[in-house]
Computed example of a mutant assay.
Amino acid sequence: MSMSGRVIMIVGNGEVPEGAAAAIDAADLVIRFNDCRSTGKGGSKTDIVAVCNTGRPALAMLGGGRWKTSEPVRQAREIWSVRSGARFAAMRARLATTHPDLDDFCDDYTAGFESFARATGRKHRVIPAETQDRLERDLSRFEPSRYVVPSSGLVAIADILLNGASSSDHFVLAGFGHSGWVWHPFAAERRYVDALAADGRLHRLDQPISSDLPQGA
Protein backbone atom coordinates (compact mmCIF):
# COMPACT_ATOMS: atom_id res chain seq x y z
CA MET A 1 0.00 0.00 0.00
CA SER A 2 1.38 3.39 -0.96
CA MET A 3 1.10 6.53 1.12
CA SER A 4 0.86 10.17 0.17
CA GLY A 5 3.62 12.60 1.03
CA ARG A 6 7.11 13.34 -0.13
CA VAL A 7 10.23 11.29 0.46
CA ILE A 8 12.90 13.77 1.54
CA MET A 9 16.43 12.39 1.42
CA ILE A 10 19.08 14.18 3.51
CA VAL A 11 22.51 13.02 2.35
CA GLY A 12 25.61 13.79 4.39
CA ASN A 13 29.18 13.47 3.14
CA GLY A 14 29.94 10.25 5.02
CA GLU A 15 29.74 6.67 3.75
CA VAL A 16 26.48 5.60 2.17
CA PRO A 17 25.25 1.99 2.00
CA GLU A 18 25.83 -0.11 -1.09
CA GLY A 19 22.99 0.31 -3.54
CA ALA A 20 21.94 3.65 -2.07
CA ALA A 21 22.15 5.62 -5.29
CA ALA A 22 18.87 4.40 -6.78
CA ALA A 23 16.91 5.03 -3.58
CA ILE A 24 18.39 8.51 -3.19
CA ASP A 25 17.74 9.49 -6.80
CA ALA A 26 14.14 8.23 -6.54
CA ALA A 27 13.34 10.59 -3.66
CA ASP A 28 11.12 13.61 -4.18
CA LEU A 29 13.66 15.97 -2.65
CA VAL A 30 17.40 15.46 -2.12
CA ILE A 31 19.45 17.73 0.14
CA ARG A 32 23.25 17.59 0.08
CA PHE A 33 25.98 19.55 1.84
CA ASN A 34 28.90 21.81 0.96
CA ASP A 35 31.01 20.19 -1.77
CA CYS A 36 28.49 17.33 -2.18
CA ARG A 37 31.05 14.54 -1.83
CA SER A 38 28.05 12.22 -1.47
CA THR A 39 27.40 12.15 -5.21
CA GLY A 40 28.44 9.07 -7.14
CA LYS A 41 27.88 6.16 -4.80
CA GLY A 42 25.19 8.32 -3.21
CA GLY A 43 23.39 9.06 -6.47
CA SER A 44 23.34 12.31 -8.41
CA LYS A 45 20.01 14.04 -7.85
CA THR A 46 20.47 17.30 -5.95
CA ASP A 47 17.65 19.75 -5.24
CA ILE A 48 19.14 21.73 -2.35
CA VAL A 49 22.75 22.34 -1.33
CA ALA A 50 23.08 23.38 2.31
CA VAL A 51 26.35 25.21 2.92
CA CYS A 52 28.46 26.12 5.91
CA ASN A 53 28.45 29.87 5.18
CA THR A 54 31.07 31.00 7.71
CA GLY A 55 34.79 30.45 8.03
CA ARG A 56 37.18 28.48 5.86
CA PRO A 57 34.68 26.08 4.26
CA ALA A 58 32.65 29.02 2.94
CA LEU A 59 35.73 30.83 1.67
CA ALA A 60 36.89 27.69 -0.14
CA MET A 61 33.54 27.21 -1.86
CA LEU A 62 33.20 30.81 -2.98
CA GLY A 63 36.86 31.45 -3.66
CA GLY A 64 37.20 29.41 -6.83
CA GLY A 65 35.08 28.18 -9.70
CA ARG A 66 35.15 24.48 -8.91
CA TRP A 67 32.29 24.46 -6.38
CA LYS A 68 30.14 26.89 -8.35
CA THR A 69 30.38 24.87 -11.55
CA SER A 70 30.14 21.39 -10.02
CA GLU A 71 27.26 19.30 -11.29
CA PRO A 72 25.39 19.02 -7.95
CA VAL A 73 25.51 22.79 -7.45
CA ARG A 74 24.51 23.46 -11.06
CA GLN A 75 21.55 21.11 -10.61
CA ALA A 76 20.35 22.51 -7.27
CA ARG A 77 17.28 24.74 -7.20
CA GLU A 78 18.11 26.24 -3.82
CA ILE A 79 21.17 27.13 -1.74
CA TRP A 80 20.68 27.12 2.02
CA SER A 81 23.08 28.95 4.33
CA VAL A 82 23.07 26.93 7.54
CA ARG A 83 24.51 29.52 9.92
CA SER A 84 23.10 32.84 11.14
CA GLY A 85 25.77 35.47 10.53
CA ALA A 86 24.59 37.56 13.49
CA ARG A 87 24.62 34.57 15.82
CA PHE A 88 28.17 33.68 14.81
CA ALA A 89 29.34 37.28 15.07
CA ALA A 90 28.14 37.23 18.67
CA MET A 91 30.36 34.18 19.30
CA ARG A 92 33.55 35.86 18.12
CA ALA A 93 34.68 37.46 21.39
CA ARG A 94 34.14 34.27 23.39
CA LEU A 95 35.98 32.13 20.85
CA ALA A 96 38.90 34.55 20.84
CA THR A 97 39.45 33.48 24.46
CA THR A 98 38.46 29.81 24.37
CA HIS A 99 39.58 28.85 20.85
CA PRO A 100 42.06 31.47 19.56
CA ASP A 101 42.97 29.20 16.63
CA LEU A 102 39.44 29.70 15.28
CA ASP A 103 40.06 33.36 14.55
CA ASP A 104 38.29 33.18 11.17
CA PHE A 105 35.56 30.76 12.24
CA CYS A 106 32.89 33.48 12.48
CA ASP A 107 33.75 35.27 9.23
CA ASP A 108 30.41 35.57 7.47
CA TYR A 109 30.11 34.82 3.74
CA THR A 110 26.33 34.70 3.55
CA ALA A 111 26.26 37.65 1.14
CA GLY A 112 28.50 35.74 -1.25
CA PHE A 113 26.16 32.76 -1.37
CA GLU A 114 23.16 35.05 -1.75
CA SER A 115 24.84 36.88 -4.63
CA PHE A 116 25.78 33.60 -6.32
CA ALA A 117 22.24 32.26 -5.98
CA ARG A 118 20.73 35.46 -7.35
CA ALA A 119 23.15 35.55 -10.29
CA THR A 120 22.32 31.96 -11.21
CA GLY A 121 18.55 32.27 -10.84
CA ARG A 122 17.97 30.16 -7.79
CA LYS A 123 16.60 30.66 -4.30
CA HIS A 124 18.83 31.43 -1.34
CA ARG A 125 17.65 30.84 2.20
CA VAL A 126 19.27 31.33 5.60
CA ILE A 127 18.26 28.83 8.27
CA PRO A 128 16.88 30.85 11.20
CA ALA A 129 19.08 31.31 14.26
CA GLU A 130 16.17 30.03 16.33
CA THR A 131 16.60 26.61 14.75
CA GLN A 132 20.11 26.23 16.16
CA ASP A 133 18.96 27.62 19.52
CA ARG A 134 16.23 24.98 19.69
CA LEU A 135 18.61 22.27 18.51
CA GLU A 136 21.15 23.08 21.20
CA ARG A 137 18.47 22.88 23.87
CA ASP A 138 17.42 19.49 22.52
CA LEU A 139 21.04 18.30 22.30
CA SER A 140 21.59 19.11 25.95
CA ARG A 141 19.45 16.06 26.82
CA PHE A 142 22.14 13.84 25.29
CA GLU A 143 25.04 15.12 27.42
CA PRO A 144 27.26 16.57 24.72
CA SER A 145 30.93 16.94 25.48
CA ARG A 146 32.41 20.44 25.22
CA TYR A 147 31.77 21.76 21.72
CA VAL A 148 31.66 24.93 19.63
CA VAL A 149 28.64 24.38 17.37
CA PRO A 150 26.51 21.49 16.12
CA SER A 151 27.38 20.20 12.66
CA SER A 152 25.79 21.79 9.60
CA GLY A 153 24.10 18.49 8.82
CA LEU A 154 22.36 18.36 12.17
CA VAL A 155 21.22 21.98 11.92
CA ALA A 156 19.70 21.22 8.53
CA ILE A 157 17.93 18.12 9.89
CA ALA A 158 16.50 20.14 12.77
CA ASP A 159 15.41 22.89 10.40
CA ILE A 160 13.59 20.54 8.05
CA LEU A 161 11.76 18.87 10.91
CA LEU A 162 10.85 22.21 12.49
CA ASN A 163 10.18 24.44 9.51
CA GLY A 164 9.84 22.42 6.33
CA ALA A 165 7.88 19.34 7.26
CA SER A 166 4.41 18.26 6.31
CA SER A 167 2.81 15.61 8.48
CA SER A 168 2.79 13.34 5.43
CA ASP A 169 6.49 13.71 4.59
CA HIS A 170 8.98 10.88 5.10
CA PHE A 171 12.56 11.80 6.05
CA VAL A 172 15.45 9.49 5.24
CA LEU A 173 19.12 10.02 6.17
CA ALA A 174 22.15 8.66 4.39
CA GLY A 175 25.84 9.46 4.72
CA PHE A 176 25.72 10.52 8.37
CA GLY A 177 28.59 8.82 10.20
CA HIS A 178 28.58 11.39 13.03
CA SER A 179 32.33 11.85 13.00
CA GLY A 180 34.68 14.57 11.86
CA TRP A 181 35.69 17.97 13.24
CA VAL A 182 36.62 17.72 16.89
CA TRP A 183 34.50 20.70 17.98
CA HIS A 184 31.18 19.27 16.79
CA PRO A 185 29.37 17.17 19.46
CA PHE A 186 29.12 14.08 17.27
CA ALA A 187 28.43 11.50 19.99
CA ALA A 188 25.46 13.52 21.24
CA GLU A 189 24.37 14.17 17.64
CA ARG A 190 24.23 10.44 17.00
CA ARG A 191 22.08 9.91 20.09
CA TYR A 192 19.82 12.79 19.02
CA VAL A 193 19.26 11.26 15.57
CA ASP A 194 18.77 7.79 17.04
CA ALA A 195 16.05 9.23 19.30
CA LEU A 196 14.32 10.80 16.29
CA ALA A 197 14.50 7.46 14.50
CA ALA A 198 13.11 5.62 17.53
CA ASP A 199 10.18 8.07 17.54
CA GLY A 200 9.56 7.38 13.85
CA ARG A 201 10.29 10.96 12.82
CA LEU A 202 12.97 9.86 10.37
CA HIS A 203 14.76 6.75 9.13
CA ARG A 204 18.33 5.91 8.25
CA LEU A 205 18.70 4.47 4.76
CA ASP A 206 20.61 1.46 6.09
CA GLN A 207 17.86 0.59 8.56
CA PRO A 208 14.53 -1.11 7.83
CA ILE A 209 11.81 1.24 6.67
CA SER A 210 8.10 0.55 6.78
CA SER A 211 6.81 -1.17 3.66
CA ASP A 212 4.22 1.62 3.51
CA LEU A 213 6.94 4.18 2.70
CA PRO A 214 6.59 5.43 -0.89
CA GLN A 215 9.36 4.05 -3.07
CA GLY A 216 9.93 6.94 -5.39
CA ALA A 217 8.80 10.36 -6.43
Rank of each mutant, 00 (worst) to 15 (best):
R74V: 06
R204V: 09
D169I: 11
S179G: 10
G85E: 04
L95V: 04
A174M: 01
I31A: 07
C52E: 10
T69I: 07
P17I: 07
N13Q: 03
P214G: 03
T131H: 02
R74P: 01
G14W: 09
P214Y: 02
F186K: 00
S84M: 02
L59M: 15
D28C: 14
R66K: 14
R190D: 12
Q75C: 10
L29P: 00
G153E: 08
T46Q: 04
V149S: 12
P150E: 01
D103N: 14
A188C: 00
Q215E: 09
R146T: 13
M91E: 12
V7A: 06
T120M: 03
A21G: 07
D138M: 10
W181L: 12
A165T: 10
A58C: 09
T69C: 01
G175Y: 05
L102F: 10
V172Q: 06
F186V: 08
L29G: 02
G200Y: 04
M9H: 00
S151W: 08
M91W: 12
A129H: 10
L135Q: 08
G12W: 05
G216H: 06
P57Y: 11
T54D: 11
A187I: 13
D212Y: 14
G112C: 07
G180Y: 07
A22C: 10
E18Q: 13
G121P: 05
H170N: 15
L95S: 10
G164K: 05
G40L: 05
L29H: 01
F88K: 10
V126P: 01
K41F: 12
R77S: 15
D103S: 15
M3Q: 15
G12I: 06
T120A: 05
T69L: 13
H203K: 14
A156K: 07
L205S: 04
V155Q: 00
I10L: 11
N53T: 00
A119T: 13
G19L: 08
W67T: 07
I31S: 01
A96E: 10
V193E: 04
L29V: 07
G112W: 06
D159F: 10
R56M: 13
V11Q: 01
A119E: 15
A89Q: 14
I31F: 07
V51C: 00
A195Y: 04
D159Q: 06
L154Q: 03
A76Q: 06
L202E: 07
H99I: 08
V30R: 06
R77E: 14
I157E: 05
T97N: 13
N34E: 08
S70M: 09
A117F: 07
F88D: 05
G216S: 12
V51D: 00
S140A: 15
V82K: 03
N163G: 06
C52W: 14
M1Q: 14
V82I: 11
G55I: 03
V30W: 04
S179D: 13
A27R: 00
E143L: 11
D199V: 04
I79T: 03
V193Q: 08
Y192I: 00
F176V: 04
Q132C: 10
R56T: 15
Y147L: 04
E78Y: 05
E136Y: 05
Y109R: 10
K45M: 05
G55H: 01
R92M: 11
I127H: 08
Y192P: 00
H124A: 09
I209K: 12
S145I: 11
L62P: 02
P208A: 14
I160W: 09
S44F: 12
R56Y: 15
G55P: 06
P72F: 05
L139W: 02
N13D: 00
